[in-house]
Structure formats: C-alpha cells, structure tokens
Amino acid sequence: MTATLLGSADAAAASAPSRGRARRRSRHLKWVLLFLAPWAAGMVLFFVYPLLATVYFSFTNYDGLNTADFVGLRNYVFMFTSDPLVKAAAYNTLWLVVILTIGRLLFAMGVAQILTKVRNGSGFLRALCYLPSLAPPVAATLTFVFLFNPGTGPVNTILGWLGINGPLWFNDPNLSKPSLTLLTLWGSGELMIIILAAMLDVPADLYEAAQIDGAGPWMRFRKITLPSIAPVLLFGVVNSIIFALQYFTQAVVAGSVASGSADAVGNSKLIGFPDNSTLTFPVWMYNEGFRSYHMGYASAMAVLLFIVSFAFTAILIRQLRAGKAEAS
C-alpha cells in the first residue's frame, strides 16, 4: 500500500457538510496555530534564519571568533576561479550523484524483483537485505574499509584464492569512490523495500492478462511493472540525489581510516584520502568552515549546495502539485 501525498486531507474535509465549514474554520484556527507553533518556531530558528544567515555570511570574511566583515563577492570569486579543491570536491559529489543514483535505483529494483519471485524463506531474506541499511554509517564504513583493505582484507584474500591480484580499493584514487558505491548499495535496503511494496501493489491480473497475450518477462516488466512503480521511482531518484549531495560521513570515515591517520576526521592534509578522491563537497565545506577558520567561504559553498539541492526538491514538489491537480 502506498499513500498518496496530497488530496486525502482535502477529500476528507470536503466530505464534511459544507455549511459547517465556515464556522469550523474560525473555531479551529486557534488549534491550527497551537499545533503548528513548535514547528513554526523550529522553522524560523533552524531553517529560515540560518538560510538567510548563510547567504549573509557568504559575503563576509568570518572565522567564527570575530565579527563577520563584509568582503563582497570575494568568496564566490575564489570558489569559481581559484580553489582547485572545490573543483575536485564538486566533481566527486557530482560523480556520486550520478553513479549512486543510477546504481541505487537499478540495484534496488533488481533485488526487489528477485524478492517478488521468492516463495520460500522470503521473510528472512527480506530482513537480511534490509538490515544493512540500518547499520550506523560509521560502523558500515569501518566494516567495508576492513573488508576491502588491500593487505589482509577478506575480499582480496578471496580474490587471491581465485588467482586474482586484488586492487587497492579504498587506497586507490580511482577505486575509492566505486568502493564507497558498493558500501552504499549494501545499505540501500530502504529503497528496496519501497520498490518491493510498489511492485507487490501492481494487480496480479494485469500480469496474467499480459501473459495470456504472450508478453515475455521483459515486456511485462517494461509495460506493466515500470509504469506502475514510476511515481515511487521518481521519489527514489530525488531522494538518492539529495542523499548523494550531502554525502559526508562515509567519505570522511573511509578516507581517514584507509589513510591510517590518527585523527578523528582525518588529518587536515590527508582529508579526502587518497588524492582527494573522497573529498566530497560537504567534506570540503566542513574542512573550510570548521577547521580552517573560513566560515564565510564555507557559507558560499553552502549557498551553492542549497541552490543545487533545492532545484531537485522543486522537481519533487512540482510532481506532488501535479498529483494533487490530478486528484481533484
């Protein structure tokens, strides 16, 4: 069962006798205000104000200790013309947005498809597929850096048995992001369950009718399954993009542990290890703002990140609006 986003509340309200509506509206306005008051306070304190302040700080030189000095566009000029690492960081995040989104979606769809076919022990199997997604990201990342450690890790050990000379995984700048991708796929259980639920929602008679018409499995998938789960896939796409845009913990922990550094977030010179290949946009932002005393510059990066992520959120919101228009 999948809920529709908009419409139900309106439908519910619309079904109430219309003559009572005006009276009720005035009566429950105070309730609306009361119920929404904590949320509104939170919205102002933790969303509206910080967003405005971020924009303001992005035009300042601000070290978090002294008052912010207005410096005009200097942070933006540095970001777009000078800083080589912000380019590396933007590239890494873009890479993750594209590969993680596609990878997660295909992988989750594949696993969900198999899960729909399994008849024996399916409950246990689903639990097994879903469980890794609950693992704390720090623990999951440590697990994968250990599994894939080039010297003595189980993955390369097993590859060695097969006569394959295992690569350096998290220690290789070309493979560190693919290794992070594997880690992320392992933990994409939530998306699997969402897609699985949508697949099971498709009426069985549609498939049976198609089968009678002689449609093969691929045809049935393309003509029936895919259109039926399309709205859920859109949600999955937007969700995965936002997830990839804020990719931080796994990158930081993997880089730090693989480098063998002794610091919690990785030594400032080893951040993004190896060769800045795990330096994502939020990681560089954190480094500049909270370690390098460049909170103004970090705010400029935040503004860019906000613009990009909001563009994708807007797509989702438009889809919801369209859904609402269709419903009414």
Partner: peptide
C-alpha cells in the same frame, strides 16, 4: 511544501549559522 523543502535540505547548508 515548506515541510518537504526542510526535509530535503542537506544539513550542511545551514550548519555555520546554527553552529554560531
């Protein structure tokens, strides 16, 4: 819609002012 926008906001975007 505001709720959805807030839900989708990467936490890093507003980290500096909230931290301050």
């Amino acid at each position: 819609m505001l709720v959805i926008a807030a839900m989708m906001l990467p936490p890093q975007v507003v980290a500096v002012p909230i931290y301050s």
